[in-house]
Computed example of a mutant assay.
Amino acid sequence: MADPFDSALDLLRRLNPKHTAEHLNNIIQLAPDLTEDLLSSVDQPLTVRRCKQTGRDYLLCDYNRDGDSYRSPWSNLFDPPLEEERKGLGGVSGGASEGAGEGAVPNDRVRKMEVQANEAFDVYRDLYYEGGVSSVYFWNLDDGFAGVVLLKKSSDSAGSTSVWDSIHVFEAIDRGRTTNYRLTSTVILSLETSDGHLDLSGNMTRQFEQDLSVTSGDASHIANIGRIVEDMESKMRNQLQEVYFGKAKDVVGDLRSVGSLSEGQRDRETQREMINGVRGRQ
């Protein structure tokens, strides 16, 4: 008998990724024992929430979730507040909120890097996306730290809706003067026309690992993470363009050629003559 978890993942891979959250919720209702495993393993389209303390938008994912609450990277507080925050920590803004969920908030050093990373990727978001929302979350590891970089951009124009979601999960393992960075990146892309004649959705996941030097303390980590995320996003964007639009161009070309049939026939005859001429010289 097939493992229920593997079967659930296999099913989700075959369904429209634009509706992953809905499909995931349906599977969880049928198999509640798989809830935590599925939520931590399946990448979903990102959801935006407004931070009540700072008024800034942030993105929700499993990495800033504690039960039904989500931590804002801007205030470091959960919404809805956790029990510890209800006891008097709800008014604390910024820094490391001690007691705001055991193990759910990074220590002072990692939280400081998290703040710097959010500021850096907010600039990155503005430069590359010219809008959208970004969020970065860090957490502690025994031999380093880990985190996730989230980016979301939605566009509604000319009767079409498009959504780009980037999820970059990384581990940074200290190795003396160098740090080993392991990155797993997922991009979820959705394109849809308002008349329903076109609905194109899909996702792509890639992995990357590299050892980089750390010469300027924790500031080097922010620079290194920014560099590998930027490189990965550029590569995945080009690959998605080839997969989505290159394939569509090939299909349309097979259905209806740009040139006339006579021109195509002449090109094929010329090609055959060139091949025969080369063979004749051998």
Rank of each mutant, 00 (worst) to 15 (best):
Y137D: 07
N180K: 15
V163Y: 04
T178V: 15
G176M: 10
D126I: 04
S134V: 11
V110K: 00
D126V: 02
D195H: 04
L141A: 09
D174C: 09
L200S: 14
D174E: 15
L127F: 02
G202Y: 04
G147Y: 08
Y181W: 12
P106F: 02
D126T: 10
G202W: 02
I188W: 07
Y129L: 15
D142E: 15
V110C: 01
K153W: 00
L127D: 07
S201T: 08
S157A: 15
P106M: 04
V163C: 08
E171V: 01
N140D: 15
R175M: 13
T161A: 14
L198H: 10
E119N: 09
S166F: 09
R111W: 05
R111V: 05
A172K: 06
D174A: 14
G202A: 04
L141R: 15
S154E: 05
F145I: 02
S135R: 05
N180I: 07
H168Y: 08
K153R: 01
S154F: 00
S154L: 01
L151Q: 00
S166W: 10
T178S: 15
L191I: 06
D199N: 15
L150P: 02
N203A: 08
I188D: 08
Q116I: 14
L151S: 00
W139P: 02
S201H: 11
G196N: 06
L191A: 06
T193N: 11
L191C: 03
D199K: 13
S154Q: 03
W139G: 14
V187Q: 05
S194G: 06
N118R: 03
V115R: 05
V169A: 12
A146E: 12
D122C: 02
I188H: 04
L189E: 12
I173H: 13
S162I: 05
K112A: 15
L198T: 14
E192G: 11
L151I: 00
R177Y: 12
R177L: 14
T186I: 08
S157F: 10
P106S: 04
Q207E: 14
E114N: 13
D143Q: 12
G131D: 03
T184P: 01
E114L: 09
L198E: 10
N107F: 04
T178N: 15
F145A: 05
P106K: 07
M204E: 12
R206C: 09
E209N: 11
D156F: 13
D199I: 10
S185W: 04
Y129W: 07
D199M: 11
F208M: 10
E209K: 09
S160C: 07
T205S: 14
V169K: 14
S185D: 06
N180L: 15
S135E: 03
M113P: 02
S160T: 05
D174G: 13
N203L: 12
A146P: 03
F121A: 00
